[in-house]
Write a protein that binds this DNA or RNA. Structure first.
Lengths: 246, 246
DNA sequence: TAGTGGTCTAGACCACGTG
DNA sequence: ACGTGGTCTAGACCACTAT
């Protein structure tokens, strides 16, 4: 891999970031400063900063400057209830806010629609069978961090509070339980990828930030699938936590 | 978000990719072709292609062309043994190779070293206590897809086959079991982020491909931590699979 | 109003894969 | 040898932020 000028500049800045010389939140030297300091063209200075941004180390604010990125990781425990009793704390390897910072909910939309084929398959429904589609956005400290869309069988959820924006105390799962369809087993499929433009905008993602996509299917005791939930997480904001026995 | 020429070109190509007009593996129009077709500068054409690359939709081969990316997802089931009996197949939402394509192992290095602080904490060892460090790379179809580094307490693994490149039949876990320290419970912490330059090179990652970082701690029946495993996965190659009860 | 990042044009050289 | 992407310089305009 050749050592281009842009990479050299990025290396310098990266070292200063990782040594703590440039603390999180600090403003990095701007393009003009780098042009001066290294004797390169403006584009090259810009490329150096873009490298750091694409590594998730920095974030640009047009009109203001480029800043060392701050991470406030949210820990998402898939098996919270189990974890409380089984595991001592202190075995967490990444720093993360332990207290549950409340997730404010935003942009709630509920509608009934034919099920997409992958939803139909996951819910063992006939193709295009109507489902209740619930989508919302989660916001922490004013920063959007997650999009989620749930799909519930229309035959089950239609006419209940699950088909309204406010599902009532305990949420969707409590309503399902009241109908004798309490979710007790879960399958999650996890991927990571780059967001498309829409997703990046809705999540206010800094360029170079990946997203984590989680598809969860919830099953009743009778192994009947009753909910599919597609979540899109700002990867810079989350650590996922899974605990299981082999 | 302004509609710049580069974005316009990217939008056109993206639409043709998603419609199937440009199939996976196809060569995209090159920079000169885009300059001709859209009447823009070479840099702008390059920027358009870079946009697609950063979305993970395309991948550049210098000297040859830019190609529509092909995905061959590997399914990694964290709780394989449980899953076999509990769950019917066919509820998988993302396509993935079901058969276990064998992971060839590569670049095996074993050494003894003072434990990094986060390893010491996870293993409940005194700071700098020696640990056996086992690192290796996994390759599928000639493509590197995963890096892994395990840390084992020196007092447990020293002098055993766990301290040699070849750990013998059943691997590390079988050796631990023979010592009465069979791992039965697991905690995994999952993050996604952009790779640094070294990581991108070792995994032959296309620019714009994120990595998934997994930190796994394995516990015995007595809840004693006996192994820490740090894995780095090519996010474009993997789907993670978790199953649990709530 | 001055400074910032974002993007564009125009032209150049390089390393590399392919025929 | 030719075409490819990768990167650089030099100069320009824009939209936005900060003061």
């Amino acid at each position: 891999m050749p050592e281009t000028p842009a990479r050299q500049i990025a290396d310098d800045l990266r070292a200063r970031i990782q040594s703590g010389d440039l603390a999180p939140g600090t403003r990095l030297p701007g393009e003009p400063a780098l042009v001066q300091r290294y004797g390169v063209a403006k584009q090259t200075a810009a490329n150096a900063l873009k490298l750091l941004i694409s590594e998730g180390l920095a974030s640009a604010r047009p009109g203001s400057g480029t800043y060392v990125r701050e991470f406030r990781l949210i820990r998402r425990s898939a098996t919270r209830r189990l974890s409380r009793t089984l595991w001592a704390s202190g075995n967490s390897v990444w720093a993360a806010d332990v207290e549950d910072r409340p997730l404010e909910v935003d942009r709630v939309h509920v509608r009934e629609a034919p099920s997409p084929s992958w939803v139909a398959e996951a819910l063992s429904l006939p193709e295009k069978e109507p489902v209740i589609v619930r989508s919302r956005r989660y916001v922490v400290d004013g920063e959007p961090v997650q999009l989620a869309t749930s799909y519930l069988p229309g035959s089950l959820a239609r006419g209940t509070r699950m088909a309204e924006p406010d599902t009532g105390p305990g949420g969707t799962y409590a309503r399902l339980a009241e109908l004798g369809a309490e979710p007790v087993d879960f399958v999650e499929e996890v991927r990571a990828r780059m967001p498309d433009r829409d997703e990046a905008e809705t999540l206010s993602l800094a360029p170079g930030t990946p997203v984590i996509e989680i598809l969860r299917v919830a099953f009743t005791v009778e192994d009947k699938p009753v909910e599919v939930n597609r979540m899109l997480l700002d990867a810079g904001s989350y650590v996922l936590d899974y605990r299981f026995s082999g």
